[in-house]
């Protein structure tokens, strides 16, 4: 792996001119530079070598927020709440739903694209910003919908705020690349509780270290894995291309009216199979039925969140052996 020449675009997207891809690398480098100093066990792979034999740790979780499972129980209420507003979708994955005139779900679109990239597009390739929106939402979008009075891109614009229609990228407050990098870096700090005992339980660690929400699927797991590696003196970074990815749909057990494998209805729209950023779940028209006719565990799909239960999100990290001797610090949260 050696030293990375530059940070690639999320999903290794090739849609930007080469110079603008280089500029994206600078953007990520800036986010990394912010944490490398304060957190010596987090390293910049464009500056420091990564040995070739280091296998990445793939961290997998469900797109459905566990926080809602805990607060609403296992029934329908949790799905309704997750579908109600994007701010509830806090697992580095958001989704929006299209229904037919009868309210039956026709398509669900999932994204893990970070807002930083779209801000970058707006700055460096403004002409193409609208083009991308037209491709993914439709021709009804105008540039003025996407920019504020000062001409700055508005991530939470009218076309990318709802759980209905076709969303573009992540907007929930914690769902961004900077937060993921900050979390991975801050989790390199070992903690002890007020009695001096090491904090290793992930829920306790997240509270203690101020590392996000204890009942997100993502943050506590990332924090624990990074913290375990840091305890061994290792240095940590994320795997290029930095980003959150749709790892796939767990479709076994989904029952379709014609017996087809529902996995075939999962279409990656941006990124690659290995680095999927945006995907939709929809049934081709010629089959004569729609998503709302598919059953999951004996129940027809009536919520996008039912499918979110089955969507896997992935972040990949690298931990290379090193000789740090970290000192445990008291809790901050």
């Amino acid at each position: 792996m050696a030293i990375l020449t530059r940070f690639d675009t999320p999903g290794r997207l090739l849609e930007l001119a080469d110079g603008d891809r280089e500029a994206w690398s600078d953007t990520v480098a800036g986010l990394v530079a912010d944490v490398v100093g304060p957190f010596p066990q987090f390293y910049d792979p464009t500056v420091t070598d990564t040995p070739d034999d280091i296998a990445p740790s793939h961290i997998i979780w469900s797109a459905f927020p566990t926080r809602l499972l805990r607060e609403e129980g296992a029934g329908e209420a949790r799905w309704a709440r997750a579908d109600s507003v994007r701010d509830e979708q806090d697992e580095y994955c958001e989704w929006s739903i299209e229904r037919d005139a009868d309210g039956k779900i026709g398509r669900i679109t999932f994204t893990t694209e970070v807002r930083e990239y779209w801000k970058h597009v707006a700055v460096h390739e403004r002409d193409r910003l609208l083009e991308f929106y037209h491709e993914q939402v439709g021709p009804q979008v105008s540039l003025s919908d996407l920019l504020d009075e000062d001409g700055q891109y508005v991530p939470r614009n009218r076309w990318n705020i709802s759980t209905e229609g076709r969303l573009i990228h992540l907007v929930q407050g914690n769902n961004n690349l900077e937060a993921a990098i900050q979390l991975a870096a801050q989790a390199t700090i070992l903690r002890h509780d007020s009695d001096g005992k090491p904090v290793t339980d992930r829920q306790q660690l997240v509270r203690c270290g101020g590392l996000g929400h204890a009942f997100r699927n993502s943050d506590p797991q990332i924090a624990e894995i990074v913290n375990d590696a840091a305890a061994l003196g290792a240095e940590i970074t994320l795997l290029d291309p930095f980003g959150l990815y749709l790892d796939g749909l767990q479709s076994a057990g989904m029952q379709t009216p014609d017996g087809a494998d529902a996995a075939a209805f999962w279409q990656i729209e941006r990124g690659t199979r290995e680095h999927a950023l945006r995907a939709s779940f929809a049934v081709p028209e010629d089959r004569g039925y729609s998503v709302g006719d598919i059953m999951i565990n004996g129940r027809a799909i009536d919520f996008g969140a039912q499918v979110a239960d089955k969507v896997r999100i992935r972040l990949s990290a690298l931990a290379k052996p090193a000789t740090h001797e970290p000192v445990r610090r008291p809790c901050v949260g």
């Binding site: 997998i60 979780w61 469900s62 767990q250 076994a252 057990g253 565990n297 089955k310």
Partner: peptide, 18 residues
């Protein structure tokens, strides 16, 4: 399996029982 029991539940246990 990185998804561990999450994958086992969805891809193995529940469909097998069904």
């Amino acid at each position: 399996e990185p998804g561990g029991a999450y994958t086992l539940e969805d891809e193995v246990a529940i469909p097998s029982i069904q």
